[in-house]
Design a protein around this nucleic acid. Structure first.
Lengths: 106, 106
DNA sequence: ACGTAATACATCATATCACGAAGTATTTGT
DNA sequence: ACAAATACTTCGTGATATGATGTATTACGT
């Protein structure tokens, strides 16, 4: 997928991935993979950013000798998802504009 | 609208604005305005980029003593719009993923 | 026993890009 | 005469996705 198009979807995708259940980096990538491909460096950058902006909180926990950081969505994070949904109306209007049939040219 | 979300739409919006009829900067901004707000510096940057990547061609013409640069879409530019339409299926899948109902949390 | 893949997270440098600010110049409206 | 609209240009800045690289441990096949 076009990288510019991804930009507006990545943050909200990550939030959606932890919306119903706390999750951790590696799992998030796997859950999102069917919809959008994301490298590890991208995800951890995004998670850091979302933490700094208060969209989620982090809790470290050990699992089979390995460190895991579980991410939990906040009210602000849920709000961010709602904002996204509300903006979708505008996005669809733009899509209609781009998608409208040619009248003068082939 | 969220700036990141705009990123994937701006280029293709500009191409759509000149798809049926050659147009020029100031006019493009006005035509797109109902759908997406764009500053002049943004538009002219985009037009330059689209020209360099062969999505459109430029023709300078005088109009009432003022210089005008008319932009004409190329086959590659039309192809870019088609690519965008084809990617929309993936975008909608992502939207569904984000939009799915909560099961466990309020 | 050994090597490879998978799990798990982190950091850095780079390239792309939207945008505000500021500038140049003409025409139109009041 | 002055402001607003028309029309295009350049520059600096901040945001951000990503590949490359690194560190460690566990799981699995042979």
């Amino acid at each position: 997928m076009d990288i510019q198009l991804k930009r507006g979807l990545l943050d909200v995708c990550v939030l959606a991935a932890i919306k119903d259940k706390d999750s951790y980096g590696y799992q998030i990538i796997k859950d999102i993979k069917p919809y959008i491909e994301m490298s590890e460096s991208t995800l951890y950058t995004i998670l850091k950013r979302l933490e700094l902006s208060g969209m989620l909180t982090v809790r470290t926990s050990e699992h089979g000798g390995r460190l895991r950081k579980y991410y939990h969505i906040t009210k602000a994070g849920l709000g961010r998802i709602e904002d996204f949904k509300n903006e979708w109306r505008e996005v669809m209007a733009i899509y209609q504009f781009v998608n409208k049939e040619d009248t003068k040219r082939a």
